[in-house]
Design a protein around this nucleic acid. Structure first.
Lengths: 224, 224
DNA sequence: TTGCAATTCAAACATTTGTATGAAACTATG
DNA sequence: CATAGTTTCATACAAATGTTTGAATTGCAA
């Protein structure tokens, strides 16, 4: 097993197929056909389909988290231990957005696979994903250093919204393109990142409006 | 077929099961067991599994869209044809958030079903969902009336982000609760709506920052 | 080369799933 | 009551899918 070429071929083919078509309708036979290996190879090398998926996911999780943390660390070191909130948010959403958007050829299979994973949440993945919480806590900590005066609740919501916007932009880029008839340029990755970061940062730095908004105002009360 | 009770039982059981467990792992046999009807009844009454799903989805789509438009119309009439941007956004995200969050008993199966549908995007639904674009255009129009000076691109992004935050909050409410260790109260539906609306409105009304942010700033450039 | 372990392969298996069938039960109408 | 149309039911079918099996092949060390 000098080169593990069969294993690798399976991993690559599986990642690409899952990224393109989702977990729902990719069968082992699709994978082995794409990898040009025998059907039984998957069970021989990975044990089961679920274990194959799990291995893909842990590998990519580690890589994504490392990319995020590298960017965060670089920003904090440049700022002497405290990074600008924009930089923190950029480190959070940048890696995934860069991997998933942009002109066709630049998109990374790995990033698209991770998005699928976060969308479909198939059982073998759901079991693992709890660790992500710990990873996100590191960003909460960085945000706390960046905005010492801000309440934790606001930080949690800010991180949540930042991820929401980034995530949904990837997920539903097609709808946004159609809706805007091409006006919203999703190939301008840096522009998208700037937008997401700007809105999330605004939500985190603007006055307490988000928390003190009139709680009882519903549509019918709208001022005339 | 006086009461259509079999049809209705199937629809109810299917909606609940799909809302709870997703389309992926709910079989016709699960549905007929829950509805206490014969297996063949589904094909008899709906033709196929896909047609059953499609019927559920169109019914609920129409209802959701109507709820949104009612709230929008009420707000615009109260404002003499032009609603506050907050009210427009509230009409957009309110109905779904109210249906999906809040204390266990108040959640609506219908709303949760719609979220599933928007997440899993199973083929029979994907074919129909294009119509949603037309529905969202009505909100773009209302937003344009509310913020006449704003560029269309900003409006599209604002609507996109509002839906993203609302949607993701529903989808990943569990993660937010865990991450914040309960600090973020998702049972306070009105509070959540206020937050989402406030952030989206801020993104839409604040200066052109979102568009004029330094386009080349990446993490490594963060000011020291 | 020989022998042994690792790997690959074709084939088969056991389930699961959506759908189809034809008989039985039911309902309403004459 | 009788009959025609509708609905329900048990059962069967075909296709798809993850997994297993045992033989064949390969690679490498003695």
């Amino acid at each position: 097993m000098a080169t593990d070429q069969t294993r690798t071929a399976i991993l690559n083919a599986a990642e690409r197929l899952y990224a393109d078509r989702g977990f729902g309708d990719v069968t082992l036979r699709d994978i082995v056909a794409a990898a040009d290996v025998n059907l039984a190879a998957v069970n021989y090398h990975f044990g089961s389909k679920d274990e194959l998926i799990a291995e893909l996911f842990v590998t990519r999780s580690i890589a994504t988290n490392r990319a995020r943390l590298n960017e965060l660390k670089a920003a904090e070191e440049a700022g002497g231990g405290r990074a600008d909130i924009d930089a923190v948010l950029r480190a959070l959403v940048g890696p995934t957005l860069r991997g998933c958007l942009g002109p066709e050829r630049e998109r990374s299979t790995a990033a698209r696979f991770m998005i699928r994973a976060s969308i479909e949440a198939v059982p073998p993945i759901r079991r693992i994903r709890n660790r992500e919480i710990d990873h996100l806590r590191k960003f909460i900590a960085a945000m706390r250093r960046s905005l010492p005066g801000r309440s934790d609740v606001d930080l949690y919501w800010g991180l949540h919204f930042a991820l929401a916007m980034a995530h949904q932009t990837i997920r539903d880029s097609e709808r946004l393109t159609k809706l805007s008839e091409g006006l919203c340029d999703l190939d301008d990755v840096q522009g998208v990142i700037d937008r997401v970061v700007a809105v999330a940062a605004m939500a985190l730095t603007e006055g307490e409006t988000a928390r003190k908004a009139p709680a009882k105002l519903v549509a019918q009360d709208a001022r005339r």
